[in-house]
């Protein structure tokens, strides 16, 4: 649509600007403030320069958490994206069953995040959970509070359970927008199922898939509640992801300076990724016209 230039449109945007400035800029300034100061208590602060930043950059704790975080995001993307596409391809295209699947698949997306954690915490328990009990009965030693591997498997499966439907829903929306004529043409050419997927469905899904991948990346990058409820970051620090570590530092130990420096670097990483997300998305939109 042709847009006209109108500077008065700023007045329409002003409420959003003020509200978001209040709830984003002011808090962020507090963080910046703490990140360059040190305190001996009693609310007396003095200038510390970039001390906290260099301390955090050298601390193994942050790098370990970042490593675990990247591993977690990598694993869940590698599982959720192909699985989501696969599910979308198998969904009924229309009618009652299509609606039924849509509603059932959306259900995990609407559960409060700590309840998601609680569900899996219970489900995986050897004494009262279906999953834990079954695995135990099969003779598999499974204990997510003691064993690192079991803890990781639990939080990964939980995330797959929680968010695969999001990828599937977006992929399904992309699939539905493909006109029938494309499939008819493929049939005339006697294209195989794989070729139909590779040359018709996948390119047409690319736009929404990009959104799905990047949304899943960001949300998994700032995940906190679900793994915290299930494992509490343990055993040891095995599942302490970035957000869990940050909250431990800021609200648990009240190490304001390091926590603020940590926050800013964490946020910068996300900003960088957001920018890539935005650029890729707008370019795709432009190409589609």
């Amino acid at each position: 649509m042709e847009k006209t230039v109108n500077q008065k449109a700023w007045f329409l945007v002003l409420p959003v600007l003020l509200l978001v400035a209040f709830s984003a800029v002011i808090p962020l300034m507090t963080v910046v403030n703490y990140s360059v100061q040190d305190t001996f208590g009693n609310n007396q602060f003095f200038w510390a320069g970039l001390e906290w930043f260099s301390e955090m950059l050298e601390s193994e704790r942050m790098w370990d958490a970042l490593g675990r975080q990247l591993m977690f995001s990598g694993i869940i993307l590698a599982i959720e994206v192909p699985l989501g596409i696969f599910v979308a391809l198998n969904m009924p295209k229309s009618g009652f069953w299509s609606s039924f699947c849509l509603v059932m698949m959306s259900l995990p997306l609407l559960i409060p995040w700590n309840v998601v954690g609680t569900i899996w915490q219970i489900f995986g328990r050897v004494d009262i959970g279906l999953l834990g009990y079954t695995l135990d009965a099969l003779g598999i030693n499974y204990n997510y509070t003691q064993d690192t591997l079991a803890a990781w498997v639990t939080i990964v499966v939980m995330d797959v359970w929680h968010w695969t439907s999001l990828v599937a829903l977006l992929a399904f929306a992309g699939l539905k927008s493909i006109p029938d004529a494309y499939y008819q043409a493929a049939k005339i050419d006697q294209a195989s199922r794989w070729k139909v997927f590779r040359f018709i469905e996948l390119p047409k899904m690319m736009g929404v898939l990009m959104i799905a991948i990047l949304l899943r990346f960001m949300d998994s990058f700032m995940i906190y509640t679900e793994p915290f409820v299930v494992t509490g970051g343990g055993p040891g620090n095995a599942t302490t992801l970035l957000s869990i570590d940050l909250v431990k530092m800021a609200l648990g130990q009240f190490d304001l300076g390091p926590a603020a420096a940590f926050s800013l670097m964490y946020f910068l990483v996300i900003l960088l990724i957001s920018w890539v997300f935005y650029t890729v998305m707008t370019n795709l939109e432009k190409r589609e016209g």
Partner: peptide
């Protein structure tokens, strides 16, 4: 409408959707 800074503003809004709540909890 097009107006001064509209694209930047739109992107800035998006970054808030991507802000980790853990960063904002203490402030």
């Amino acid at each position: 409408y097009h107006f001064m800074g509209d694209k930047h503003l739109f992107f800035w809004l998006l970054t808030n959707r991507m802000a980790p709540p853990a960063v904002f909890a203490l402030p």
